[in-house]
Structures are given as structure tokens and as C-alpha cells.
């Protein structure tokens, strides 16, 4: 259903991919850890290798939990699909696009 308006109602999305240049937004959720109220949102280069993403972006955030152990991260999912990421594959290679949601467990 369209917005009811007195004129053609069409406006660009506020967070469209082009607003982020070579970067994109990625959400990361730590499944089953109720210490974190929600998933986190990060801005990262689409070309960033997954290993670097985990070590440099996800781990510092996950370490908000004093019990976090980076070596225990397992079971990545992209939305609802299991993901077996190679550390040197880029986010783009892995199909992790703008505003994608990643899950992991420990």
C-alpha cells in the first residue's frame, strides 16, 4: 500500500548503500548472550577480510562481556543461513552485504 499524499510521494532511503561509499553497515548478534540488549551495528569496508572483521571489530565489542573468549566464537550465520567463513575472504565475497545481519555463538 502506498502512502496517501497530495503529490507523488517518493524519497530516497536515508541509509542507502551509496551514502556509505566503499563501506557498509553490518549487524552482529551474539546469540544467547543476554548481557547485550541487542545486536551491534558497525560501519566497515566491504573489502574487509572476515578474519580482520572478527579480530578488529567484533572482538573488541564482544569483550564488553568480561567472560568473552575470542577463540570460542563458533556457528556463524548470515541471517538464517549457516556461514563457514574463511578468514581471508572479504565480507563482499561472503555475501555479507549492506545492512546484513550476522549471528555467532560461543
Amino acid at each position: 500500500m502506498a502512502v496517501k499524499a497530495l503529490y507523488d510521494y517518493e524519497f530516497p532511503s536515508a541509509d542507502r548503500a551509496e551514502n556509505f561509499g566503499d563501506d557498509q553497515l553490518v549487524y552482529v548478534h551474539w546469540d544467547g548472550n543476554p548481557l547485550f540488549c541487542s545486536a551491534a551495528c558497525f560501519r566497515v569496508p566491504t573489502a574487509m577480510p572476515f578474519g580482520e572483521f572478527v579480530a578488529g571489530v567484533v572482538a573488541p565489542w564482544a569483550a564488553s562481556d568480561p567472560d568473552f573468549d575470542a577463540s570460542a566464537i563458533t556457528r556463524w550465520r548470515l541471517f538464517d543461513q549457516p556461514l563457514q567463513p574463511a578468514d581471508d575472504a572479504s565480507l563482499a565475497d561472503l555475501g555479507v552485504g549492506h545492512k546484513a545481519l550476522l549471528h555467532f555463538s560461543v
Binding site: 545486536a39 551495528c41 564488553s64
Partner: peptide, 18 residues
């Protein structure tokens, strides 16, 4: 303990997706 980052928000209500 604080959340060392920014949360994912709901596009409609804008509350963090908690």
C-alpha cells in the same frame, strides 16, 4: 559493563532491537 559499540535499531520504532 557497558555495550562498547552501537546497537541495531528498529526502522520503525527506532528502539534498539532488544
Amino acid at each position: 559493563i557497558f555495550f562498547q559499540g552501537l546497537p541495531q535499531l528498529c526502522q520503525v520504532c527506532q528502539v534498539p532491537m532488544a
